[in-house]
Nucleic acid binder design. Sequence first.
DNA 1: CGACACATGTAACACGTTACATGATTTG
DNA 2: CAAATCATGTAACGTGTTACATGTGTCG
Lengths: 195, 195
Amino acid sequence: MSIRHSLLALLGRGPAYGYQLRSAFEDATRATWPLNIGQVYTTLARLERDGLVRALPEGEGSQRPYEITDVGRADLAEWFTTPVEHAGRPRDELAIKLSLALSTPGVDIRAVVQRQRTATMRHLQDCVRLKRQDENPRDLPWLLVIDALIFQAEAEIRWLDHCETTLVRHAGTPPPLPATLPAAATRAVSERTTS
Amino acid sequence: MSIRHSLLALLGRGPAYGYQLRSAFEDATRATWPLNIGQVYTTLARLERDGLVRALPEGEGSQRPYEITDVGRADLAEWFTTPVEHAGRPRDELAIKLSLALSTPGVDIRAVVQRQRTATMRHLQDCVRLKRQDENPRDLPWLLVIDALIFQAEAEIRWLDHCETTLVRHAGTPPPLPATLPAAATRAVSERTTS
DNA sequence: CGACACATGTAACACGTTACATGATTTG
DNA sequence: CAAATCATGTAACGTGTTACATGTGTCG
């Protein structure tokens, strides 16, 4: 539902046609989440069908501008008024993956955590670099979005570290190999985690 | 794609039928993300169509157990090996909403932030309470999931606070009304943010 | 003119949700 | 037996992605 409401919000600033709407959306988020142009038109059609939006007769050339209706404005106001519920959010693939990795035989969870940590760390650095490159405080919207990504990535790394310490505390197999173990045992462990 | 891989991962522990798979999934996440049973069957059908899974002939009563194939195992291993990319994640509705609220006339962003903060705070407390209730470290998978939710909620609150301070610094309209402003100006401002 | 950006649309497909329909098995 | 739970499936719909088809305007 986020595209639907996004287009509605953009039309809340005034009439616009599909192509403009995509540009405006990608301006606000700086192509963090690219928006396919086809989706814009199908979504506009659905919005019109539902009476939240109305096609304007004017429009020079091949432009078909739309305008938000009163019903649309009400829907938009409700969107802004209602907080985003956590219950309605998409499933967190990473959390599910680690949760399942933990109970699937033959999976080296610590390796999964490590690889994810590397990827997330790289993403975090990309975000920070992007933010520095473009520090002008003129487009607040974009700054807030990139900050959201940064906060999320930081939280993810903290969680991954938390996972690792928790795993070490419970499932054993700590990385500094205890010298007291016989060689056979350590070999068995590393074989299991490498396959 | 997360359900597809989740079912595949569950079948990686051994053959199972649809109903079992749902139970197993909701065990791992404790119904944080409820899984509709219908979805299980359609997903299983697609997995079978793609050769990742094979229906077993046996099965007592009305049970139709499935088994993971070698192709499926390869796909599963790749899932666990490949980190979850941030580029492929769903759009962050909250970030988009605040970003758009900032550039939509007639929207009181600070109110939006406040309402969201309240909702997220409540959600965070729910999570913490849930975790305390069920502190037994026996099912690690569930603990990791609830911790993920907690870390995310904390990050969201930090981000919302960050948004508010940023907004105050830029767009003005600080809550402690500066006594130096003439009454007319403050009235105009509060009218704009209230409508 | 030819290439390129602007602009609109459609078709096919994957995924997810909800609701409904239908049996089989257990248990009070 | 009746009700609840177990178990499988289908239909309809909304949303999202990708790819394709088409036309317009501009500029070198």
